[in-house]
Write a protein that binds this DNA or RNA. Structure first.
Lengths: 173, 173
DNA sequence: TATTGTTATACTCTATAACTATA
DNA sequence: TATAGTTATAGAGTATAACAATA
């Protein structure tokens, strides 16, 4: 199936560790800033930012879950939390009664606006400061390719929630 | 203090998102593999791997915490969990009675060995597959610089646990 | 007094499974 | 029957603060 895997070489190990450590340190710092500036967790920020980016300010739950969160119940939990704070509203979709449309409120946008400057400052200070312009471009290019590949490659067993077209032959146990 | 921060440009945003998303997807996949293959969380794996790498198979709690975990109580919790499973032992340090020395056991090494092949397979399939040799080298270089910078730049307020040398003038409240 | 580590505790987050309702 | 979402629930993980013991 997959060829022999003796081990990783030094370069690969270095890339792996650097990726994990850098993202972990960055996320930690960002989480702290988001908590202080707007009492938001990272996931909550991601949800608000996703909605804020959308032209309508709205998204279906499932689409939100695909982008940000990994389980549906987890998203329900976060959506409830945000709704309690009046940062989003949830309404039944008009076209498909099963769906719920989540919409960012003015207050939600206000929190985003309050949080953004510090957020950017953290990124500038921590991530971009030691990198050249071309470093950043290269980084974006390489990691985007890796990310796109990962999105295309579902974790071995766990089949994707969202089956594009039932290929049919998946008749196993 | 810090100069005006209008916003991030497209490249910066791309690099930031790609970093967060790629690392998040990768970590998720790795966590699943570690859980299935050895019933380990990522932090637990990091702790075991750190100990396994050490020439003596041992580390002081504080040194472990510095490298892997963020709060000391969090490390105590994880160390207890690992000790219950006989994957590590904890003993008072001989030189400094306050310290605890954590040591990986044979069984801990066995779990590591059981988990490694799959771990590497996930990295190969998900992270390295879409990247060229030189991509990987470049990635390692850039992210290592970013990581080192972040380690040197403590989050604005929270002073580092480990004060190198008391600069003295910190005479506040 | 400062440092190392543990404990008690509270809270956030996530996931699984069962359930409802609509398509 | 399949899909969208919620609920109940349980478990893992983390952090804060108070504490004990040693330096």
């Amino acid at each position: 199936m997959t060829s022999p895997r003796p081990s990783l070489d030094a370069t690969q190990l270095g890339a792996y560790f650097a990726l994990i450590e850098a993202s972990s340190l960055l996320k930690h710092a960002v989480e702290q800033q988001l908590r202080e500036a707007g009492d938001l967790s990272y996931v909550q920020f991601q949800l608000l930012a996703t909605l804020g980016d959308s032209p309508t300010g709205s998204q279906r739950m499932t689409d939100l879950a695909d982008g940000v969160v990994y389980s549906r119940s987890g998203l329900t939990y976060q959506a409830q939390t945000l709704e309690k704070r009046d940062l989003v509203t949830r309404t039944p979709s008009s076209d498909d009664e099963r769906s719920t449309t989540v919409t960012i409120t003015d207050e939600g946008r206000a929190v985003l606006a309050r949080v953004f400057p510090g957020h950017i400052a953290v990124l500038d200070d921590l991530l971009f400061a030691p990198l050249s312009r071309s470093d950043i471009e290269t980084l974006a290019d390489i990691l985007a390719r890796a990310r796109d590949h990962m999105r295309r490659t579902p974790p071995r067993s766990a089949e994707p929630r969202r089956r594009k077209k039932t290929t049919g032959t998946t008749q196993a146990p």
